[in-house]
Design a protein around this nucleic acid. Structure first.
Length: 780
DNA sequence: ATCTTCCGGGG
DNA sequence: GTGTACGGAAGAT
């Protein structure tokens, strides 16, 4: 029969000594199905020495065959390696794990120069070779089979792929979840501390499972809920880092399995570090997408949801994690905790509208399934796209090579003019680096060392790149740019709003991918690494941005700051015509990215804060909100920035002095002075006695159990000796008189305020010397 | 300054 | 599962 299937994910198993690839999919009728490919076999290549006797090498390789997974074929092929034709032997076996065994042995055979493509995950190999990408449809000849182990409506065996195409996706079932655990004094231990609440959210709204006597009951209920609702996508926030491992250890330590996959008896299993895969479903950790939002420094769920306007902080219950036991144990407060959990899981669910349409497009471009894509760094995303393209170009995928870090000169940063400026325009070349890579045909395969007749020569560094034929990067980048152009031209005429949104996400994803190529090329882990290429890109970039700065000044504007591909300018001329002139002169897309009503710079590069016309404050580069500063200092820095932009320096100084006076008068709750740090090792493993390590040791001595991976909150108390010796767990200090006020003033409040105020000529002593305020007091 | 260790999100 | 993050900043030297 013929069927059409929308691909969700791939997995594989070895059954009766043979690999079976599972294509988890949805059919035209909306049934969840599995399409099984039983005939695909793992393989890899051996690149031969020019002088090698092909037949002899092939015979030698065949002789390595073992009966558990025999070498089934060794075939000569013509392929390309960095653009040059090479002879390779394609070596095929049966069981994927044996590729590893054979690759080491084959590498030692005489006449073999290098073994390649032996480190590509089996089901991805299948996906690349057949151009099957998740979130695409394929039409195929299939035969229905029975398999009671699979929790899907129908199971098919794949006979022949007829066509792969893009079409509207089916409605996906999406579920978000979030657990709360009991965590009195420090980090929760899954062998001891129960899961007290499990919140889930689907398009039917929220549901909460609350522990009564034994949390095993609610975890079982949760597993049953998953199987009943049968989600295609399971959303969490840091679920790979916390919820999954916690749930798993919680049940496994009591001999129970968390059986929630689309295959019977399949638990979520740890894949590449930190990623949990649920068979047949896409387990997506939205933190992976949130990490790319540079504007939000602390990527907590509430911060991200607030920033994206999904759930505002003012519209939700805000609790700190250490308040959980208190709100759980106190019957009058428990409802607030339940609401807190619902707000978290609702936020997670609603974030899907922001992240999934974009993730869907990235998956369609890279072919990386959404669950892996959410965790993969930008480099891996780019690389999957490159690997797919390489296959189409008959190019061999180079191996990963261990490389020594070599620094090279980056983008040009024009030193800021410190102080406050008004009416500042930010002009931004949004695609400068990919444009340079295309224009100058940059890449490892086009680099010419030595004499070159017809090459582009990079300024400053002198690297040469041949003008033709087009290199690997250039060809792919051009495809991305052209597709983006086509998508953008389709958008205005698209009537369907949903479809228009998809097109917009597509063009954005294409741009993001293209912009990531430069970073990829200079990433030490890149298969297609080219230090010379990356160095040349920044060199051409510096040339462009300094020419632009010169032109801007010639037109009567003042350049206040510039970084890599942007210039901050002010002046009374016509900015729009300036933008047009730059665009024509340099042949690059440039736009007015932002207009700041007020902005201030410190002497440091990459650090400024500004307020736009609509009153939005951007804080860039300041460590305003790091987790390891106490709340008092974090809050103060943010308020100092706001005051400077809205009222002026004097008001900001007054604010700091007020806070210092307050703490001197001990009018600050201890809670605001707690510094939180994570313990990433067990206590014995630490070689230095850092404050948080000491505090944790004291807590242990007092009978509290502190575990690796948890957070410890401490305060610094008065006394003699090193600071680290005076760190005490916050819950062991209830008397504010024990607090070392000077430490907080000198190491927390003043430094965080001075990061801003030193630019305005304020001295530390001005902030700290609050005694003469008594005079002011009497004046009033 | 340069090298090494720590950290993130979650509860 | 054909494998084992990563990039930046604080702390140490």
């Amino acid at each position: 029969m013929i069927g059409c299937f929308y691909i969700l994910d791939f997995s594989y198993d070895v059954e009766e000594g043979k690999p079976v690839i599972y294509i988890w999919a949805i059919d035209k009728e909306g049934n969840r199905v599995a399409v099984l490919e039983k005939n695909f076999r793992p393989y890899f290549y051996a690149i031969l020495d020019d002088s090698a006797d092909t037949n002899k090498v092939a015979e030698d390789i065949k002789r390595l065959s073992v009966s558990q997974s025999p070498i089934t074929s060794v075939k000569l092929e013509e392929r390309k390696y960095y653009g040059n034709p090479v002879k390779v032997l394609r070596i095929e076996t049966v069981i994927p794990a044996y590729v590893r065994t054979y690759r080491d042995k084959v590498a030692k055979v005489r006449g073999v120069k290098e073994v390649v493509e032996a480190d590509i995950r089996f089901y991805m190999r299948y996906s690349i070779d057949n151009d099957l990408k998740p979130f695409n449809w394929f039409k195929a000849e299939v035969e229905e089979i029975q398999d009671s182990k699979l929790r899907v409506k129908k199971v098919y065996e794949l006979k022949k792929i007829i066509q792969i195409y893009e079409d509207k996706p089916p409605e996906l079932r999406i579920m978000a979840f979030d657990i709360e655990v009991y965590n009195k004094y420090g980090s929760p231990n899954p062998r001891r501390d129960p899961v007290i609440i499990i919140g889930v959210w689907t398009n039917n709204g929220g549901k909460q499972l609350v522990m009564k006597d034994d949390d095993l009951e609610i975890i079982r209920e949760f597993a049953k809920f998953v199987l009943d609702y049968d989600p295609d996508i399971i959303l969490g926030y840091n679920s790979n880092g916390f919820d999954w491992p916690y749930l798993l250890e919680r049940v496994n330590s009591r001999g129970v399995k968390l059986d929630i996959g689309r295959k019977v008896n399949s638990e979520p299993s740890q894949g590449t570090y930190g990623h949990y895969s649920v068979v047949g479903r896409l387990n997506v950790d939205l933190l992976g997408f949130a990490s790319s939002i540079a504007e939000v420094k602390v990527k907590s769920l509430d911060n991200i949801a607030d920033y994206l306007g999904v759930v505002k902080k003012t519209e939700r219950v805000n609790l700190e994690w250490y308040q959980i036991p208190e709100y759980w144990s106190d019957p009058s407060k428990r409802d607030i905790l339940l609401k807190y959990n619902m707000d978290d899981v609702r936020s997670t669910y609603l974030l899907k509208d922001v992240f999934l349409p974009f993730g869907e497009q990235l998956t369609m471009i890279t072919g990386l399934p959404l669950d892996q894509l959410s965790m993969a760094s930008v480099g891996y995303r780019v690389e999957w796209l490159l690997m797919r393209e390489a296959y189409k170009f008959n190019e061999i995928i180079p191996n990963r090579v261990e490389r020594e870090y070599e620094s090279y000169k980056g983008g040009l940063v024009i030193s800021p003019a410190p102080g406050i400026h008004e009416g500042v325009y930010v002009l931004d070349f949004s695609s400068m680096y990919p444009s340079i890579m295309i224009k100058y045909n940059i890449g490892p395969d086009t680099l010419v060392k030595g004499e070159c007749e017809d090459c582009w020569v990079a300024p400053e560094v002198g690297h040469k790149f041949r003008k033709s034929p087009d290199g690997f990067y250039k060809r792919i980048l051009q495809k991305l740019v052209e597709e983006r152009k086509a998508v953008k031209s389709k958008m205005p005429t698209e009537k369907d709003e949903y479809e228009r949104r998809r097109l917009d996400e597509r063009q954005r994803a294409l741009k993001v991918m293209a912009n990531a190529f430069y970073g990829y090329m200079g990433w030490l882990g890149a298969r297609w690494y080219s230090k010379e290429g990356a160095e040349a890109v920044t060199a051409w970039g510096r040339e462009i941005i300094s020419s632009v700065a010169k032109l801007v000044e010639e037109r009567g504007f003042k350049v206040i700051y510039g970084d890599t591909d942007s210039v901050f300018i002010k002046g009374s001329g016509n900015v729009d015509s300036l933008v047009n002139e730059i665009m024509n002169k340099f042949g690059l897309e440039i736009k007015i990215d932002k207009i700041y009503k007020k902005i201030f710079f410190t002497e440091n590069k990459k650090r400024y804060a500004g307020i736009t016309e609509d009153g939005k404050i951007d804080i860039v580069g300041f460590e305003a909100v790091r987790g390891d500063w106490c709340d008092l200092a974090k809050d103060l820095q943010r308020r100092v920035i706001e005051k400077i932009l809205t009222s002026g320096v004097d008001e900001a100084v007054k604010l700091v002095r007020d806070v210092i006076m307050k703490i001197r008068r001990k009018e600050v709750p201890i809670q605001d002075l707690v510094i939180w740090k994570s313990l990433d090792k067990s206590l014995e493993e630490y070689e230095v006695d850092a404050p948080h390590v000491n505090a944790a040791k004291k807590a242990m001595k007092a009978g509290y159990v502190i575990f690796k991976g948890g957070k410890i909150g401490y305060v610094i108390v008065k006394g003699s000796g090193k600071i680290s010796e005076r760190a005490e767990p916050y819950f062991m200090v209830s008397d504010i008189n024990r607090i070392d006020i000077d430490y907080y003033i000198d190491k927390q409040i003043v430094p965080s305020a001075m990061r801003i105020l030193e630019q305005f000529g304020i001295k530390e002593s001005t902030l700290k010397n609050t005694s003469f305020d008594i005079l002011n007091f009497f004046k009033k």
